[in-house]
Simulated assay, not measured.
Amino acid sequence: MKAIQPIAKLDFAFSFYCLQHRYSHSLARVSKAVSHTGDGHLYVLFACLAWGIDNVYGRGFVIAGLLAFLLELPLYWVLKNSFQRRRPQELSPLLPAFITPSDRYSLPSGHTAAAFVMATLMGHWYPDIAGMAFIWATLIGGARIMLGVHFLSDVIIGALLGNGCATLSLIFLGSRL
């Protein structure tokens, strides 16, 4: 546990910096909107658009997405319930939460993991929009920090989880699509 103490200190300092400045309430409003784009409804819309419009890559995008989420969701659940890391506001009354999270623990960030699944798959199948997709996924992770429900390391691990699951799905399906 001593090995992660420096990370925990950095996480707390970063969250304190993000949540205790004079613009944190204004940023929280924008962060809510950004975070909401990672709630899942846009993923379904992207899949439907890809399936319905793109006769070349749409089917592969949807199948890879289904497999990636089939990997990501149970891994996310196991990690979250294994680490049982408390959320920022639970660790300090100085760290406000601007929303009520949908589950109890913070590590990894599920919103960030899902956003990076989508960004990785979009980058693979539609490279012209890869930059925008990864900026969007990063903004979702940042929004989760600015809302006070995740630490920086939660978001980083969520991004790695999402990217890893999407990459594994592409590798597995590579010769089948």
Rank of each mutant, 00 (worst) to 15 (best):
L94I: 07
P93N: 13
M1A: 14
F69N: 13
F12C: 03
A119T: 05
S109H: 07
S102L: 15
V155L: 08
K32G: 04
W77T: 14
G60W: 00
P101A: 09
L173P: 04
H124Q: 03
A28V: 06
L121Y: 11
A115H: 01
I53C: 06
F98R: 12
K2L: 14
P127T: 04
C48E: 07
A68W: 01
A119K: 10
A33N: 04
L177I: 12
Y43Q: 12
S106I: 05
Y105H: 13
Q5A: 15
A13C: 01
G52N: 06
G131D: 10
E90T: 10
P6G: 00
A13G: 02
W136H: 08
V30I: 15
R29L: 15
I156R: 11
I129P: 02
L177G: 15
C48F: 13
S82M: 03
Y57K: 09
P108S: 06
T120G: 13
L107C: 09
F61C: 02
P88R: 00
V56D: 01
M146V: 04
F83I: 13
H25S: 13
H21M: 01
P127R: 00
S35R: 10
Y57Q: 12
L168F: 10
R22D: 10
G174E: 08
Q20Y: 11
H124M: 01
A50T: 05
G40Y: 03
W125V: 09
L45A: 13
D39G: 15
I157Y: 15
F12H: 07
N81R: 12
F69M: 15
A97T: 10
T138Q: 05
L160C: 02
N81G: 03
P108E: 06
T167H: 08
A13N: 03
Y126G: 11
S153Y: 04
G60Y: 02
A130P: 06
Y76D: 12
F16E: 06
P96M: 09
Q20D: 08
K80D: 07
H41M: 14
L45I: 15
P74F: 15
L71P: 08
T37E: 06
S92C: 13
V117N: 05
L161N: 02
W77K: 02
M1K: 11
L147Q: 06
S92R: 02
M122H: 03
L173T: 07
R86V: 06
S24W: 12
P6Q: 01
F83G: 03
L67Y: 13
L75F: 13
V149E: 11
Y126D: 10
R144S: 15
T37W: 11
C165N: 04
R59M: 09
I129S: 10
G164L: 02
I53T: 00
Y126M: 07
A68R: 00
N55A: 14
S35E: 11
G40H: 02
Q20E: 09
L67S: 08
F46N: 05
D103Y: 09
L147K: 02
I53E: 00
A13M: 06
L19I: 05
M146Y: 07
R85S: 06
D154G: 11
G40L: 07
G38F: 02
R104F: 05
